[in-house]
Amino acid sequence: MSAIIDGTLFATTFLTLFVIMDPPGTVPVFLALTSTMTAKQRAKAALQAVSVAFGVIVAFMLFGQHLMSFLNISVPALQASGGLLLLLVALDLLTGKAEEPSPSGKVNVALVPLGTPLLAGPGAIVAAMLAVQRSEGSLPEWVAIVAAIVGVHLCLFLAMRFAGIIHRVLGEGGTILVTRIAGLLLAAIAVQLIADAVRAFILAG
């Protein structure tokens, strides 16, 4: 199995993206944005939102490195900026200050703001790009990264598809608790990214 997929890279990438994209935390937002939809329309919106998020993240995963080369951005710089960005997201999750957009009939909420920037936001994009940057480009590593991204998006789809049931099971308090735990884990990941970047800058100097 190790010849097919890098288990360690899969686990780290999956957990990082899972914490950032926070499938349980999308439940109340999804319910709010689709409050006027029927069950069938909600299912369609869930599929559209996940498809958009997946497309955006894969695009940056494939072409983000070329963009960095064009803009002359180093990996440590990306790690440091990504760590700071993730830390801000983590603080929002921990303090409950993350903004929850209201539904609007003028746009398809599955595309904006659900697909992007709520799901495929800056944090998730940076995490996907960093996973590629840290890998050596071998087939098991690529399989691990793609499998992790697909797995997280599958969790997102299931969370939104069965949002009503999940919200009833967790309750308001349970949803908040999951969000706070996700924020704590994300803060630890962010600090580790910044520490790695500082170490890389020191060694390069």
Rank of each mutant, 00 (worst) to 15 (best):
M1N: 14
D6Q: 13
G7D: 08
T12A: 09
L15W: 13
T16S: 12
F18T: 09
V19T: 15
I20R: 05
G25A: 07
T26V: 15
V27T: 12
V29D: 00
V29L: 10
V29S: 04
F30M: 11
L31P: 03
S35I: 11
T36M: 12
M37P: 00
K40E: 15
Q41C: 03
A43C: 03
L47W: 11
Q48K: 15
A49R: 08
S51N: 09
A53K: 10
F54D: 01
I57F: 04
V58G: 04
L67Q: 09
L67F: 15
S69D: 14
S69G: 14
L71F: 15
L71Y: 15
V75Y: 10
P76H: 09
P76C: 08
A77F: 07
L78G: 00
A80S: 07
L84G: 14
L86N: 07
L87S: 10
A90I: 03
L91V: 14
L93R: 05
P101D: 04
S102Q: 15
P103C: 05
S104Q: 08
S104M: 09
N108T: 01
V109G: 01
A110M: 06
V112T: 11
L114Q: 06
T116W: 05
L118M: 14
A120P: 14
A120S: 12
A120H: 06
P122W: 00
A124G: 07
I125N: 02
A127W: 08
A128S: 12
M129V: 10
V132F: 01
V132A: 11
Q133L: 10
E136C: 05
E136A: 13
G137E: 06
S138L: 12
P140S: 06
E141P: 04
V143D: 02
V143P: 03
A144I: 09
A144H: 00
V150Y: 01
V150F: 09
H153F: 09
C155E: 02
L156I: 12
F157L: 14
R161A: 07
F162W: 11
F162L: 05
H167T: 02
H167K: 07
L170G: 01
L170Y: 03
G171F: 03
R180P: 02
G183T: 03
A188W: 04
A190W: 06
L193K: 07
A195D: 13
D196H: 12
R199L: 10
F201D: 04
A204E: 10
A204M: 09
